[in-house]
Nucleic acid binder design. Structure first.
Lengths: 244, 244
DNA sequence: GTTTTTTATTTGTCAGACATTTAAATGTAT
DNA sequence: ATACATTTAAATGTCTGACAAATAAAAAAC
């Protein structure tokens, strides 16, 4: 661990970077204990509050956890898929809302990514995945389901589809993209006829995955993509009309 | 902004969560200025160092930036694609190294995602993208290029390919997946014959994209995927043999 | 030998102070 | 009146020193 810091301010950022680098390069391994805050303060030649600010930065990225008490301290975290996925969802959500990403772009990305999973899903799907997909299809047909619940079930369906591909890295990216899109999806209203069509397409996808027919699944997903984009376009027109 | 904090410890985390929620829900908009640290301390009923730890957490996630001086303070950041991508790369890299993800899984995810971009890239590619791809292909044929530089050029090639799809969200996920894989790719040694084959496949992909033939591009990419997986498997065998 | 108590260590928090940076207000000269 | 230099005030960045709370290990009591 480096002991010298540049003269320019922002010590806490420099210390956080130094420790982060040590973790990334493997100098600090999982569950390793960092020196105590006082020791770090002495090592880097700064005060304890400054060290603490640095540690909080790392904690915010889930790189370390802290424990109080005699054998406590800061420990290197094992970065989990779930944590990365959560922070990806948060970041992506903000990215979409702050940068005025249009529905088409987000939709296109989502279905393109999903399409990438289909061949693998068709090959590896297990009964649990098929059951999860069919359960969501059934829920989507329930009477009195509001738009938000329909959307949530839609997300769950696609999540099961992605899980069927059996690749955790793909799941991570897909879940990030799909969940981040939910605020946009929630602005779309799903009439009964729209729902029926979506459910029919979901059923075609599930059947195709069941029958290990990746090509049929891709065809149905493409239809779903263009229909969803169409619904999004309609929703935007209606909002524009309401404003004008 | 809430004023009450639960009695359980970890004030700084609670304050960070409260402010983060305000940003996500839009109560705090881009470039809005947070109250001064002293004001926040008073509002939440804690000391300034505690508030500062909370702010450092948010700064670590790029949610806020701070400026010193009279008109300074903490401001809500516009979350940029670049920042999200950088943090995604960092997280993914750690995820791969800490969770012993095998080369096949990472490779599979990467090429599956890349395949998702091909139809869009074939449709939208611009001369700049084609030029970038061909420039990297030329570099990959350079004599005396070490493995790491070859890998870097490989990443640049695929990055250009992804950019051609013209969807920033896809680019974000792809770049995250591809760059995070680089440490794994760097463990593979590329002999002259391997390089020639990879370059030939790159050329086939570039030509297909140039000719707007997504099907041909997919075929070439699939070959590249299986060949890369094969090289990775060989590299693993050699390491195993060296240990045994 | 088991349980209880003590103790030492470490993080979490507080208070007040000073240093540094920076924009705006003020003053000054042309 | 404008341009430039100076002062000022507000804000973050940092330091010192202290106490509270949690916790594991050591010591003591039974």
């Amino acid at each position: 661990m480096k002991t010298e810091l540049k003269t320019a301010g922002e010590y806490s950022a420099q210390i956080a970077n130094a420790i982060r680098e040590a973790i990334i390069t493997g100098k600090l391994t999982v569950d390793a204990r960092l020196p105590s805050e006082s020791d770090l303060a002495e090592t880097f030649g700064v005060s304890r509050p400054t060290v603490r600010e640095a540690l909080k930065r790392l904690a915010a990225q889930n790189l370390i956890r802290t424990q109080r008490g005699a054998a406590g301290g800061a420990f290197v975290n094992r970065v989990s898929f779930e944590e990365v996925q959560n922070s990806l969802v948060t970041s992506s959500t903000l990215l979409l809302s702050m940068n005025a990403i249009d529905f088409e772009t987000a939709c296109e990305a989502r279905y393109a990514l999903e399409r990438a999973c289909l061949p693998l899903a068709a090959e590896r799907r297990l009964p649990t995945h098929l059951a999860a997909m069919r359960a969501e299809i059934a829920r989507q047909g329930t009477d009195g389901l509001d738009d938000q619940a329909f959307c949530a079930s839609d997300v769950a369906f696609h999540r099961a589809l992605v899980e069927a591909a059996g690749n955790p890295i793909l799941s991570l990216h897909l879940a990030g993209a799909v969940e981040a899109m939910q605020p946009l999806m929630n602005m779309v209203t799903f009439r009964t006829r729209s729902r029926e069509r979506i459910i029919a397409l979901h059923r075609r996808i599930a059947d195709a995955i069941d029958g290990r027919d990746a090509g049929a699944a891709e065809a149905a997903l493409l239809e779903l993509a263009s229909y969803t984009a169409q619904l999004g376009g309609k929703a935007r027109e209606q909002r524009a009309a309401a404003r004008g």
